[in-house]
């Protein structure tokens, strides 16, 4: 129990990630796959954000930092900002991926009139919408 509670952030991110992974691989609807992809990536973002946290830590902004603060700064009082900044980049990447995925899903929908993957595969095998190959 102690083991579970003391590392709860890792259990949580693993759970979120696995839900997303399951959806990406097992769901049939393309939009559900895309939503699962978002959940999967969010799991990793939660992981990174949680590793920067410190108990009792505050936001990493030093008051009157520019030349005014002559006192010694104790890093233990501030959360680690680096993982958070990294995740800004990862969020941008996931937005980009989401955009491309939605564009592809939209094109698939206009070509095949469905978002269900098994129906799309069926139509591909029947040679519909694939007349150009």
């Amino acid at each position: 129990m102690e083991f579970l509670l003391s590392k709860y952030n890792y259990w949580l991110y693993t759970l979120i990630m696995m839900i997303g992974l399951y959806g990406m691989l097992a769901k049939n609807n393309l939009v559900k796959k895309i939503i699962s992809m978002g959940i999967f990536q969010t799991g990793i973002i939660v992981f990174y954000v949680s590793i920067g946290a410190k108990s009792g830590g505050t936001i990493p902004i030093i008051e009157h930092g520019q030349g005014a603060a002559h006192g010694i700064i104790n890093p233990a009082n501030y959360v680690n900002p680096l993982p958070h900044v990294l995740m800004l980049t990862a969020i941008v990447v996931s937005v980009g991926t989401l955009g491309v995925a939605l564009a592809l899903a939209l094109r698939l929908y206009t070509e095949y009139n469905t978002l269900h993957e098994d129906e799309i595969i069926e139509r591909i095998n029947q040679g519909e919408g694939g007349s150009d190959d």
Binding site: F47, A101, I124, G130, S131
Partner: peptide, 26 residues
């Protein structure tokens, strides 16, 4: 047109691959 579905599959698996890499770096 046939490339759309293949591209979508690649996007899903490619994202999983890249995310696992990111997690490992974490």
């Amino acid at each position: 047109v046939r490339a759309l579905h293949a591209g979508f599959n690649y996007l899903i698996l490619g994202t999983i691959g890249a995310s696992l890499y990111l997690l490992g770096v974490g």
